[in-house]
Design a protein around this nucleic acid. Structure first.
Lengths: 157, 157
DNA sequence: ATCAATGCAAATAATTTGCAAAAAG
DNA sequence: CTTTTTGCAAATTATTTGCATTGAT
């Protein structure tokens, strides 16, 4: 099922490139394949490393030049989790409105959608004179394991 | 009313320093006064400039060393609005749970609180096995003026 | 052919840090 | 007196950019 969706995301990105008269290159192909075959959030550096496994010629500069295209297309979103570097989330192609719950201890992230929240957001915004275009909701929380054991096994240092 | 609240925020920060056996210095005093006498969001650079108006001896290093104390105290929160630098929001002392609506065009920011949203967040989190500790909600929207005139007068380039 | 895209290495920009001197408690 | 804090300047880190060359269309 991820495959069908990924094919779709890739397809959409190709259309985005075509629309802007941008060219398909081997490096871009490697980067795009990498991005849309994971559901994990990644950093620029990780994307470089993973893309290089597909095509050794991918350079850091090209990764940094491709990332803005990906975010501009709306298929990938830049995330700030308060870490030293930015993360990128490739799941906006499939779930354009999803939110995040992050475990305070281990950093494990769960994604969810909520029409109820969106409804309240729309209502409040309208009352304040705004029309919602997009939203970004991050919940910091403790996961079950943390509350039971005092620490998470998934924690990485 | 901002005064009473600000006095309170300052007070709370002093207690935070005392608790950690940290010292009050002229430079810290200038920075703290600056932070808690505005409701505006600011960058590190702006904080430096404003603090220097109160005490010329404040250095960039001290600002950068004080900022983590402010965020650690919970009275100020680091914000990512997708700009090149981080912003800091001094209004968490008075409104610990507030959210942001940002105009897509002019960047004007309105703050609001919503128990209804928090309630839904708690419910969903519980269902997923998480207990909410804090949340961060940013709505990007168009303001009334933008929709009527096609651009905002508050826009700064 | 034409112009976009690339890798490289140098440049930028925000933030952090080492250190000797100054100031707080 | 002891220990924290400071300013300075140098260091670090992520990201961006100029340029000559390569590659897509």
């Amino acid at each position: 099922m991820a495959d069908a969706a990924n094919k779709c995301a890739r397809q959409r990105f190709l259309e985005f490139l075509a629309q802007k008269n941008l060219r398909m290159t081997g490096q871009r192909r490697a980067i795009i394949e990498t991005v849309f075959s994971t559901e994990e959030h990644f950093t620029a550096e990780q994307l470089l490393e993973w893309s290089r496994r597909r095509d050794k010629s991918v350079s850091r500069a090209t990764v940094y030049r491709t990332l803005p295209l990906l975010t501009e297309s709306g298929l990938v979103r830049e995330m700030d989790f308060g870490k030293e570097h930015k993360f990128y989330d490739p799941n906006y192609a499939e779930h354009p409105r999803h939110n995040h719950i992050i475990c305070q201890d281990c950093g494990k992230i769960v994604e969810f959608e909520s029409e109820k929240i969106e409804h309240v957001e729309n209502e409040i915004s309208r009352r304040l004179g705004y029309a919602v275009k997009s939203h970004r909701l991050q919940i910091t929380a403790t996961c079950e394991e943390f509350r039971q054991r005092g620490k998470c096994s998934k924690k990485r240092p």
